[in-house]
Design a binder for these strands. Structure first.
Lengths: 206, 206
DNA sequence: GCTCTATTTAGACATATGTCGAATTAGATG
DNA sequence: CATCTAATTCGACATATGTCTAAATAGAGC
């Protein structure tokens, strides 16, 4: 499992932080009963919509809440699977491992960006709109590919789909950013120097 | 289980809050390996002693950490039982119930006091020194006794010991505060009017 | 494209929480 | 009892987080 952005401790920490607020706990309770729109939640919790949005974002980042759009309103629901998965992790959490965290190495740009789009289980909530941020996500996807071997299109798609359903678009972007190269029908990871660290993207070299 | 001061949601919330900080998570990790003194923790976590004390207090309030004195230093250890117990509760936590919390009824004096002495599992960390606060704890202990029936000394002790080992002292205090009465060898709960709410304690009526 | 509605984002402000130095307490030791 | 040490408590300050209003966005229906 090399997909997660965060270490075990960080994952747990983020999970606990997400749960450590009355409004959010109550929100989970409400969502456990049935889907709710932002407005409904705001009403029941006696908060303003923006505040509810804010809390929902935090819960979504943990994969605890999912949303489905219907017209302009969004129906939010509790993902029980995620809740159970995380709880189970808490339960097993070999307390020993918690100690191994390094004091707090300040996190780099990519990590900071990813924090906003990657759920605890390694799936993406959505793709960033900003080009720079998309870069961070793409670099992160590259963790799944080794240099020096080839991948079929199917393999590439499969790897990407562990994180996001739209493997077609992302696959193209990986090439657009010169992270992957395609020759004939075969994909190959490009050396890191070609795309490392915030550099402007090279032109596609199909 | 009528012992807890807090509702289910509140208990969970306090637990999550306790866990939702990097220093405390790391502290738990360290304590999982072996006992530590405050100094050691301060050293390993790169914090000052007062800060460590502060965090330990929070963990202790949840019953997650226990301490044993040796001379002037105190050795702190993780109570795995407590950790597992709480984790299990998280796991089962019928999310449904979370919703039932009332918005936030401001808490009364007793609750506020109890928060500082009662762990999540209903045991007392220690008895308050201040008379007024002891009153709050004693009133809380009275939850275990019904009016209109009698208790043997053994039953009284047993009930008290679910919260604190020193049943002898506490039993005497319950009588001193006119919450319980003893006739012959039989104990009986006094009507609430006799001791309700912060009133000065009546003189013992053995 | 304009307008209406639900939601989200941005920025300001308030509250809660963590951290520390200084002062205090509690136990040990002479 | 004076003194030493480990720990805790207190109070000040800094940071993090929650909440709000105002402004921006995204979809639906003209």
């Amino acid at each position: 499992m090399i997909f997660a952005v965060l270490t075990m401790t960080e994952t747990l920490l983020e999970f606990f932080k997400a749960m450590a607020h009355e409004s959010r706990l109550r929100m989970i309770g409400l969502l456990a009963q049935r889907e709710h729109s932002v407005q409904e939640l705001a009403e029941k919790l006696d908060l303003k919509e923006p505040t509810v949005s804010h809390h929902l974002a935090i819960l979504k980042a943990q994969g605890l809440v999912t949303a489905r759009a219907e017209g302009t309103t969004r129906w939010h629901a509790l993902d029980r699977t995620a809740l159970e998965r995380m709880s189970a992790q808490v339960l097993q959490a070999p307390a020993e491992k918690l100690a191994r965290t390094q004091p707090k190495r300040p996190e780099d740009y990519d990590t900071k960006v990813l924090r906003g789009f990657v759920r605890g289980d390694g799936t993406l909530t959505h793709m960033p709109a900003q080009r720079k941020k998309r870069g961070a996500v793409l670099r992160w996807l590259m963790r799944d590919f080794e240099e020096g071997r080839t991948y079929s299109e199917g393999e590439v798609n499969e790897a990407i789909q562990r994180h996001h359903w739209d493997s077609a678009t992302l696959r193209r972007e990986l090439i657009g950013h010169a992270m992957m190269a395609r020759e004939n029908r075969v994909y190959r990871r490009q050396p890191r120097e070609m795309w490392k660290e915030g550099g402007e993207a090279q032109s596609p070299r199909t």
